[in-house]
Design a protein around this nucleic acid. Structure first.
Lengths: 188, 188, 188, 188
DNA sequence: GATGAATGAGAATTCATTCAT
DNA sequence: TATGAATGAATTCTCATTCAT
């Protein structure tokens, strides 16, 4: 019954916490639910994570790391012979295909920094990590950061509206905006 | 004790709810706090808004409407003699200057749709409203929607990282991305 | 929309109240639910039935009356050529066949008199009504009342245990007890 | 403030719950009242009995056990030299003498199974327990169960109508019904 | 007469956290 | 070190009832 010696418990609790957020949202993250999800006594969760915020923190750190790892994988798999825009389309489409629960979960944790100051460094790290990756394909830092913002905005647009993310559609949006310099200032 | 007759109470409750979200976040939106904020009995809030979700709904509807009105104001004030990019810079800077609490509040409600299905139509309305406005300045729908996504992404980037939003910096990001068509696929 | 003139509303409310008790139990009988069930404004239920107890009262009065009417129908349909025990079996079986919700509802209201003094006269009326009917087939009042008790006890036994009420089984129980005089005092 | 260590608390809560039902009825069984009755903090009742149903369950289990123990005591005290009917009269009269609050309480909990499915096994256990006891004095199972039903019905009749339960009267009813085999089918 | 609004009380639950063991 | 028990605060929600219209 009682796992007297259980060195990975902390990690297992983090993973349980992430599943709990996925299921019940950030508001629904409680010691009790994590304990139940990890099949561990309640006291154990409060022992390893004294406060609810500690749990939240650890959850964001973990998903952020995993998400960034995924982005790096994408970056390393880029085919130089393929237009970069198409690689961006692939990134977005992969994130939005299948059930979107994972993407929603990641964004929910990431955006929680909007309110919780303590999470902002964590969120910034994700953002900067992506920008750094993108920087290898952009002429300057500003463009890389803007591209990161665009990707976030597009992801959210699909997640918020529940619209299908067809590759033609994504492609249209990306090419539209990326080549928009002349367009939006027609008077020029 | 209090007014037995109070025809505007419902609206006052909505405004109180928005202030509560601003102060305590969405998780902190409770009937009790709204009652206290609006100075009405607790039962009155549950009478007008049977569930917490009803309250949340009304709050998003209201801020969404106000935000869209602000965007329209901006659009109507656009000076055709000024490069459109600069008008976009102005929009972002105005939203991010001063204390950012209002912007955070609006985004928090807007992004709540990520988890709460019921709010998605509301969020989509905001998004589409902005895209419609922008459409007057873009060659096609896709570009308008992409531009809306970009603006969201940029707003979030500043809000999440707590970075200053200088007009030069914003300008750099916008011009970088808008003219990025050639750049990101240098080989072409 | 508003039924300005609606003379049968009181009766419709009673019937709605009975349905509510059937669905939610006596504890679940509330003005609100009755209003919803009868599709009538809340204020209308409190107007016609000032208190919850009034509603409960009316509901018991009505089901008691209907139940007694059913019993009388049974009594009048008794075939003199058939052993009376078989007619009792028929009565029980009919009450327990199909879904037992109606029977449960009637007993729930009837037994509420156990706690609510005010309902006792009503319950006594049902009991005495049945005893009076049975009296036509028993040698004296005491036997009639005892038979009424037996029938109640048997009904409850089947309702409480959820057991099937086969006619052979009921018959066995009835004949066992009715001829038990000699048996239970074997020494006599 | 109160005892941090209190090993019998659970049991004390059950007893408090039974007193609360006795005082306020099943509908009146609330965590709050139990807490007050047992003089423990509200949170303690919800800790030990997460839901109102758990409380109800425990209360019925306890009274059922006690009631059955009483019945066994009666059975063991039966005098073989006395007609069994008189022993039945004694059982009923003892249960109905003095204040009938205990009897009402027991029946209220027992009959709650009518609505609450989850309580039915508990109620069935009481019923079967009594039938088993009676079986030692009846020729077959059916008669034992019918006798149990008769006793229930008689108890309820007195409890519902508030009539005095004189021993002559009870005796008359019992002998009437037990010897009714010939009577109710006079034509036979 | 009829009714929508209002109100205050109280319901079940859930919880973070503390503490004795 | 780990943990079950305990606690007090807060949550949503439902309600009977009252009252102004």
């Amino acid at each position: 019954m009682a796992r007297r010696y259980d060195p990975d418990r902390r990690q297992r609790l983090i993973e349980a916490a992430i599943r709990v957020v996925g299921e019940h949202g950030i508001d629904g993250l409680t010691h009790r639910r994590v304990a139940a999800e990890a099949d561990v006594p309640l006291g154990s969760t409060t022992y390893h994570f004294a406060s609810r915020d500690d749990l939240l923190h650890a959850a964001l750190r973990q998903t952020g790391k995993e998400w960034l790892a995924g982005a790096e994988l994408w970056e390393r798999s880029i085919d130089p012979g393929v237009p970069f825009v198409d690689e961006l389309v692939r990134l977005l489409q992969e994130s939005l295909s299948g059930d979107r629960r994972r993407a929603r979960l990641e964004y929910e944790l990431y955006l929680a920094a909007l309110r919780h100051h303590a999470l902002r460094p964590q969120a910034a790290e994700c953002l900067d990590g992506l920008a750094t990756l993108l920087r290898r394909r952009t002429p300057d830092d500003a463009t890389a950061r803007a591209l990161a913002a665009l990707l976030d905005g597009l992801m959210l647009q699909f997640l918020l509206t529940d619209r299908e993310a067809g590759s033609q559609e994504i492609r249209g949006m990306l090419t539209g905006i990326l080549g928009a310099a002349q367009v939006v200032t027609p008077g020029r």
